[in-house]
Design a protein around this nucleic acid. Structure first.
Lengths: 386, 386
DNA sequence: CCGCGTTACTTCCATGTCGAAAGAAAAGGT
DNA sequence: ACCTTTTCTTTCGACATGGAAGTAACGCGG
C-alpha cells in the first residue's frame, strides 16, 4: 500500500546488545559501551562497524555536558537516528481506536483517534488500515505496526479472546498486514505497556520491574531478568475475586471487597452512585474528595488503602526494584497519596526497603505507544529480551 | 584439624554447566547433555574430558530402563560420585544446633544434634567445631561447611543481626573456619533452603519457583531465571504487619489479623491458650481440629484460609511455576487442605492456571541440609546461579 | 555370520568471538 | 613543543564452538 523500507540486516547477539544499549540509553561512546556491556575496546570497534555501515548507528557530535573538563581524546558518541524509522501503535477500545506514530526511541510524534462503529474484525481492520494510510502520508518511513487489545493474544498475532469486542481467535495481525503491507504485531494491551515501559519508560535498565494499571479494570505485569514474565493469566487482568478487604463494598463487577470493587473506575463511580444517587465522573469524584466531601473522601480513601495494600503485596512477593502505576485511574494517587503511602508501610516489614513507586498519568495514547514500542522490539531487534 | 581434600580445579563456564547439569539431573550421557545444553556432540567430548580426568565425573554402567529397546551404540552415562565428597550443614536455633552430613547430591547420610547452652559466638563456634570433629571422624571427605541462621547475613560469612541469638556483626564463618580448617559458608536459613530446593528439591529445573515456610515465623523466598532473587528484606521474614484479614485474631507477635497472627505455630498455640486456657502443642491442636473439636477447627480453618490467601497472592504477583510449602507448620495443610485449596481458588482468576503447590513435611534437619547444599554450590561450583 | 542402519562418541579443522597489546588519534596541561 | 590522558583502531593469539568425517558399539535381518 505504501513504500516500506525493510528492516536492517539481521544482527549477531553482540551487535544486538550494542544496538539495544544505544537505543535505550541515549548516545553512548564506544568506550562507555565497552564498560556497560563488559567488553573490550577492541570488540566495540568490531561490533559497531557493521552497525555504522548499515546506518542503524551514526556518529554524533559530542553534546555532552561541557561542564566536566575531561582530559584525553574526546569520546565519539554513537546514536541511532531516531527519526529514520517510525512505528505505528494502535489501542483498540470498545468505542474508539487510538493511534500514535513513534520514533525509534518510542517518542510520540503524531496522534490520530477514530470512533469505532462496529466490532466486526474486517471492519476494525479496515479502520486500522485507513488510519495507517493517513498516518503514513505524513510519516512515510514506517517500519511496523503494533496493536494493543484488551484480552488474550496468542503468538503476537491472533486475538484468542476479547470479551469486549466479542472476538474469538481473530487473526488480527494477518488482517491488518493484508491491508497495509506492513508487518504487524498484536499483543495484549497491558503486556505491550509493560514491555514499552521496561525499555523506554520507568523500567529502563532495571532487572526487576512491575506495572500495575488502574482503569476500567486492573492490570498487572512483571519483568524479571530484563524480560517480561509470561504466565497463563496474561491478558486476564486481576480477577473479580481478589479480596482486599472482606468488609469492603459490593459492586456489580467484583465480589465484596475485591480489588476490582474497590479500585476500578466503574466501581468507584458505582459506589458513589449507589450512595448518593448522583452519577459523577471519576474526575469529579476525585475533585469532591479533594474538596473534603465526606462520601467521596470515604470511597477514595478506601480505594487508596486498597491500592497501598496491592502495591505492598507486589513489593513483598515479586520484589521488583520499582513499581509503576499507570492507567486512567492513577489520579487517585494525587488526591490520596498519603493514604496510599500509609497503607504500603502498614503492609511491609518495618525494615524493608521503601518501595520505589512511580505514578504515570496516562491516557489511551500511552497504551498505543506501548504497542508501537513492542513492534519496534519484535520487528527491528528480533525476538525478545535484552 | 582434620584432613581436607581441597576442591576440584576451577571450572570453565562450559564445564561448570555440564557439571551442574549432571549433578542436579542424575546420570546423563554425553548425547543427552548435548541436547539439554544445546551444544554439539564434539563440544561435549571436549568439556567432559577434564571433568572425567579430575574425577568429578565418572562413566557409569547404563542402569537405564531396559524396557525401551534402543538401536545403535548404547550411550555412556556420566555421573558424579555422590559419596566422593561430603558437606556439613548446620542449623542454629535458639536452644539447639542441628547438623547433617550430605553427599554431593544433597542426600543426608548422617545427623547430629546438640543442645545450645549459650549464645556467645565463641561458644557457638566451639560447639559447631566439636560437632564437625565428631562428624568428620565418620565422614572424612568433607569439602565444606554451610551454616544456616535465622537473621540477616552479609557476604555469606557475617551474621549482621540475629535477634534470637542477640548477635550483631558476628563473623561466624571466620570463627568456624579457624576451628575446623574447612571452608565455611554462612547464610540466612530461609535463603539456604530456597537455594537447596531450587537445585535438588521441589524447584529442580524450574525457572521461577517460590518457597513459603511456616514455623516459628513465616519465611519467603523467590527464584527467578534459576537464580534466587535478592532483596533488602532477606532474612527479615514476613513482618508482623502483613494483614490478611482485618477481622482476624490479635496475638502478641503480630497485629490484628496479620499473617503472623494467623499462621505461625506460636500464634496458633496462643489463640488456643487464650480461648481455652489449655496449653496444647501444635500437633495436638491439629489433631483436635481433625477430630472435630470446634475451637481448634475454627482456628485451624482460619489459618488454612490465610495460607490459601498468601499462596494465591504469591501466585498472582510473583507468578512462579511452583510454590513449595515447607517448615514445621505445614501439618496444617494435611488437616485443612481443602480450606487451603478453596481459599487459593477464591483469590485467583477463575481462568488462571491452577497453582502447582507442593507441601514438604520438614524438620530442622531440612534447614541444615539447605545450608550444606549452599556450601556445595558456593565452594565446589563457584559463585551462584546455574 | 555378515553387512546395514542407527546411535554414540571422537578427532580434526574452519570459524568466529574475544581480550590483550601495541599503535594511532585527539584532546588538555605545562 | 612535549607529555599525559583517554579514545579508538589494528593485530594477533587464545579459546569455544559447530560441523564434517571417522570410529565404535549395538540390534536387525538376511
Amino acid at each position: 500500500m505504501t513504500a516500506v523500507t525493510d528492516g536492517w540486516p539481521p544482527l549477531s547477539p553482540g551487535e544486538r546488545s550494542v544496538a539495544i544499549e544505544v537505543l535505550v540509553n541515549g548516545p553512548l561512546s564506544r568506550a562507555e559501551l565497552a564498560r556497560r556491556l563488559d567488553l573490550s575496546a577492541g570488540s566495540l570497534t568490531r561490533l559497531t562497524k557493521p552497525l555504522l555501515e548499515s546506518g542503524l548507528l551514526v556518529e554524533v557530535p559530542d553534546a555532552g555536558s561541557p561542564a566536566e573538563v575531561r582530559q584525553g581524546r574526546p569520546s565519539q558518541p554513537l546514536d541511532v537516528v531516531s527519526e529514520s524509522r517510525a512505528f505505528l501503535g494502535f489501542k483498540i477500545t470498545e468505542d474508539m481506536v487510538y493511534s500514535v506514530v513513534t520514533t525509534l526511541r518510542g517518542v510520540v510524534v503524531a496522534r490520530l483517534d477514530r470512533p469505532l462503529t462496529g466490532r466486526d474484525p474486517a471492519h476494525v481492520a479496515d479502520l486500522v488500515g485507513g488510519m495507517t494510510a493517513e498516518l503514513t502520508a505524513a510519516h512515510p518511513a514506517v517500519s511496523g505496526i503494533g496493536i494493543g487489545v484488551g484480552g488474550r493474544v496468542e503468538k503476537r498475532s491472533v486475538v484468542a479472546d476479547s470479551v469486549f469486542l466479542d472476538w474469538y481467535d481473530v487473526p488480527l495481525a494477518e488482517l491488518v498486514e493484508e491491508r497495509t503491507g506492513l508487518r504487524v504485531v498484536v499483543e495484549n494491551d497491558v503486556t505491550a505497556l509493560v514491555e514499552a515501559e521496561s525499555w523506554f519508560g520507568a523500567g529502563r535498565g532495571l532487572d526487576r520491574f512491575a506495572v500495575l494499571t488502574i482503569g476500567a479494570g486492573l492490570g498487572y505485569g512483571l519483568v524479571s531478568g530484563g524480560r517480561r514474565v509470561r504466565s497463563a493469566e496474561d491478558g486476564l487482568g486481576i480477577g473479580r475475586r481478589w479480596i482486599v478487604n472482606p468488609n469492603g463494598p459490593l459492586t456489580p463487577d467484583g465480589e465484596r471487597g475485591s480489588a476490582i470493587s474497590l479500585l476500578t473506575i466503574p466501581s468507584i463511580r458505582y459506589q458513589i452512585r449507589a450512595a448518593t444517587g448522583h452519577d459523577l465522573t471519576y474526575d469529579e469524584i476525585l475533585a469532591s474528595a479533594a474538596a473534603g466531601d465526606p462520601m467521596a473522601s470515604r470511597v477514595v480513601d478506601e480505594a487508596a488503602r486498597a491500592l497501598g495494600t496491592l502495591v505492598a503485596q507486589i513489593a513483598n512477593f515479586a520484589m521488583p526494584e520499582k513499581i509503576l502505576l499507570a492507567g486512567e485511574g492513577v489520579g487517585l494517587v494525587e488526591v490520596a497519596g498519603a493514604a496510599v503511602e500509609e497503607s504500603i508501610l502498614a503492609n511491609r516489614h518495618p525494615l524493608a526497603d521503601p518501595v520505589d513507586l512511580e505514578t504515570k498519568v496516562s491516557d489511551f495514547h500511552d497504551w498505543a505507544r506501548g504497542a508501537a514500542v513492542l513492534a519496534l522490539q519484535v520487528l527491528v531487534l528480533g525476538a525478545a529480551g535484552r
